[in-house]
Design a binder for these strands. Sequence first.
DNA 1: CCAAAAGTGTTTTAATTACACCCATGC
DNA 2: GCATGGGTGTAATTAAAACACTTTTGG
Lengths: 234, 234
Amino acid sequence: MTRSTSVESGIRVAVSTVILTLRRDDTGDARLALPLVLRTRDPHRGEWALPGGWLDESEGLSSAAARTLAETTGLAPSYLEQLYAFGAVDRSPSRVVSVVYWALVRAEDATAAIAQENVRWFDADDLPPLAFDHARIVEYALWRLRNKVGYSRVAQGFLPPEFTLADLREAYEAILGRRLDPANFRRQVDATRSLIPTNAFRTGSHRPARLYRDATDVELADRGPLSPEETRTS
Amino acid sequence: MTRSTSVESGIRVAVSTVILTLRRDDTGDARLALPLVLRTRDPHRGEWALPGGWLDESEGLSSAAARTLAETTGLAPSYLEQLYAFGAVDRSPSRVVSVVYWALVRAEDATAAIAQENVRWFDADDLPPLAFDHARIVEYALWRLRNKVGYSRVAQGFLPPEFTLADLREAYEAILGRRLDPANFRRQVDATRSLIPTNAFRTGSHRPARLYRDATDVELADRGPLSPEETRTS
DNA sequence: CCAAAAGTGTTTTAATTACACCCATGC
DNA sequence: GCATGGGTGTAATTAAAACACTTTTGG
């Protein structure tokens, strides 16, 4: 497009996203799941890869992540954060720097997600062989999530606006892979003052459970150094 | 270089690094300091900017960070970690994605650093106006350091192989900007079992202080998802 | 001897954990 | 009634903080 060669480069910038949601397995337990795209072109044709695409010259990094996320799943994320920039020389036949994001989508959104050719949701700890270095990327995204759930409210990104403490605890348990004491969990979350109780209850089984919603309009977690556009609550 | 236009892009990839060290101020206290480069070309000619350069097609991201770090300071970092990828459309007149690293260098190395035209070391909380979005980047790097010092051994990246507990505490105090109780600090660090005492003492003033060195060969902190080359201890 | 930093001990407070127990609903 | 998850109470353990006190050097 431009005549000057000084603004051209043999290095291309891609943006990919590790999209996570909660899904119920056969036993009814919630488990982490993520969508992958079957590659129809070389390199790595026939292998599964993270959703993503080339960074357009006119869009920001997080915009590109949200765009490719919508293109592959039809969803808007409830949480989106940059994960890491991968740029080893040998990670692809051509020179590609991938800026990878990770996103959370609500469970009920994910079940309503558009079913698309070449896109499938996999259990996060039962993945097929992945293209490029994507296996390592997913592993790191899961590490980040498990870490961040310990000091932030990110887990609420999996839940609808109103939820019970058992819902929230189930999300934590699925992320951390271990059971949490209901009594202590309750005390810990209301010590953070991040939930406000509603007057509604979820009924249907045993004693009804109170529904809660977010106490504040602030972010679920620190998403890093955001540009002014990214700071706006969309 | 290549004839195919499909591997060309109007987006260029730059790598910059926030290089941090400890320096003594007039009162003898240790303070965080970092080198900046005076821009001699537009855009932002005459303003100070982070050391960095264009990513070469044949080098990895962290290699580029180490290379530009050596070019501007003549130093090798004792710690190097990716900070964030900045890619807002309007952060530069041309489209640039900057992958930013942060690095620690040892104090005595920094004082021996090559004095270079257009490069100056500034006190971290008394910086001149910076080019591009570099002020925000430095701020985030300092936040990351202050955060990471709480749950890792990164602070040792400022110190020589052998040091006293007072040296280490002084580094913590400079990073965190507050005093720490010597008694509690001692207990906390030896609870981590990350230091082993030597039989040497530092003398010269008052009661001699025992010298310690790193207990392990492992990294000072989790540097993120590293490629195989980056994992090698160089 | 005195000042000052190195190093130890002790008390208090807060956070975490484990677990007993009561409550309210569906069946 | 009774099984089950919702919700409260409480004791034990652990970690963090505050601070008095002893030790060892230089001057």
